[in-house]
Nucleic acid binder design. Structure first.
Lengths: 146, 146
DNA sequence: ACGATGCCTTAGAATAGTTCTAATTCTCAG
DNA sequence: CTGAGAATTAGAACTATTCTAAGGCATCGT
């Protein structure tokens, strides 16, 4: 399956430059790997995927690149329960649904109206910069899904 | 400030018995420590606090007891970002506010109405057993707080 | 073009948090 | 009192992540 990894470097290079950082092959490939398969991979999983394109990369670099991307607001780091951090290139406001049977994680879009309602529970004096919503449960085989 | 730690064993022993488990001194003290200071301590912090009452307890036992309490639904395990798991004896529906400056974590009550609204974002086929909401930000010195 | 400067990558060591293992102790039923 | 199962313990093992020190590479001023 052909995959166009052509358009992404623009915004990536831009964002990096904004922070005074360079667009290196390692950073580009790590980012492209996240975009290519949005299944919330761990650093180790990213490492394996990146190695097929850039076999000399080290795990430390993968951690460095992921951290850099998070700093540049290109990627979100997510932590469900104990266990490795997972990475998500979806920047729109969304919740995560963690399927306890399969271990899979799905993005759930958050309408601004709900987000607003949630933020409204904060008493005066609480100044939230971000909010994270995590559901846990199971997904049904969707009787007649589509 | 005097603190009555007398009433808890009832429900604790009950819950444990329900699961076919015994109410040991270790379990009781770990639980009482969580109730006494609800600052979302880590396992290590619980260990230190428990040791002042039961100096021979081991860290492994603290982990075992905490896990047991979570299984019995007496305590919630919470994971903010990477870092150690924190434990919370508040069983009512609530969100967590993580103050990035002080590192402190505050409970925020969740009105059923908001909880409902949040659950409503799930498309058909998603069956959530629980939802966790985590705010990150800072708390203001509450100009005229009380 | 050339060297200096500083960013980036790398491998491996180190660390933090948690779980595992095997041995011992405790509890309770018979 | 004895045996079976449950719980505790210390320490080893393990997993995920960060740190460290060395070397490589790109860019800038001259």
């Amino acid at each position: 399956m052909p995959l166009a990894i052509t358009s992404l470097p623009e915004s990536l290079a831009q964002r990096l430059a904004d922070s005074g950082l360079r667009a290196t092959p390692q950073r580009e490939i790590v980012y492209s790997v996240l975009l290519a398969k949005r299944d919330h991979p761990t650093a180790d999983e990213v490492y394996v995927r990146v190695k097929s394109e850039l076999p000399t990369i080290s795990l430390a670099t993968v951690y460095n690149c992921l951290e850099t991307l998070v700093q540049c607001d290109l990627v979100r780091a997510v932590n469900f329960e104990r266990g490795p951090t997972r990475y998500c290139p979806n920047l729109r406001p969304h919740a995560h649904f963690h399927d306890e049977q399969t271990g899979a994680t799905h993005d759930i879009d958050l309408p601004p109206e709900v987000l607003e309602k949630v933020n409204a529970v904060l008493p005066a004096g609480y100044d939230a910069k971000s909010v994270e919503i995590i559901f846990r449960g199971k997904t049904n085989p969707s009787p007649a899904a589509f």
